[in-house]
Amino acid sequence: MKKLLLATAVALLSSTAFADVAVIVNPANGNAIDEGTIKKIYLGKAKSFDDGTKVNPVNQDGNSVSDEFNDKVVGKSSSQLNAYWSKLVFTGKGTPPEKLANDQAVIDFVSTNGDAIGYIDASKVTDKVKVVATF
């Protein structure tokens, strides 16, 4: 019985730790966006959508969703990302995406900005935003 409890606890823990991340855009955004493009946007290498609109990406501020996204999609730890952006910031070559506090703030931002892209816990998706990829 103890073992079963432990197994359940582990399962519960890991399901919270590894919740899926949904990448979202404004419902009016019709661009095709694949994983490679998302990675490039979040590394500052892609600055526009396919239709030429400047992309306006937002991050989350050092929470479990951003850790998950950085690990799964960008493939860098938060220290590595910080070093990566420092190289661009202090040479005038780029500015990192603005950091918002939580899923709700990202949903609000993306639903009111046609050029926005963000990511949230997949279970928090609402019909105010469009999911382009889930990781």
Partner: peptide
């Protein structure tokens, strides 16, 4: 600006990088 002599020239002073 910084003369880009070396790979790390641009962020020579930013030890964190």
């Amino acid at each position: 600006m910084r003369v880009p002599f070396y790979r790390y020239s641009d962020f020579l002073d930013v030890g964190y990088t």
